[in-house]
């Protein structure tokens, strides 16, 4: 565990002074099921990108490039909204 600061050395009131630090919080560890892209079915419609509540769909040049597994919590919304059945939810046990 990293060393935590004492009460005299943190901003008061729970304030966080740096912007964009949510990326340091690895919420991917909460996941039970992992979304997996089925390359042959994906049409790059990017509906998954629009729906993902955690911005964990990686997109490059209008193409769906996979998932940010550091932050995907495995909610399964992407698999649910995909019109082509191109995302499968698989048990994390398979990847341990």
């Amino acid at each position: 565990m990293k060393k935590l600061k004492g009460w005299k050395n943190i901003p008061i009131g729970g304030l966080i002074l740096e912007a964009g630090n949510a990326k340091d919080y690895i919420t991917g560890s909460w996941r039970t099921f992992r979304p997996v892209k089925l390359r042959e079915k994906c049409t790059n419609c990017l509906i998954c990108f629009i729906y993902c509540p955690d911005c964990s769909i990686k997109v490059k040049k209008d193409k769906m490039e996979g998932f940010d597994y550091n932050h995907c919590k495995g909610c399964g919304i992407c698999a649910n909204v995909c019109p082509f059945g191109a995302i499968e939810m698989r048990n994390e046990n398979e990847y341990q």
Binding site: K5, W7, I10, I12, G13, G14
Partner: peptide
């Protein structure tokens, strides 16, 4: 950190 914030 909650306890530290209460101490403040």
């Amino acid at each position: 950190y909650y306890f530290e914030h209460k101490r403040q």
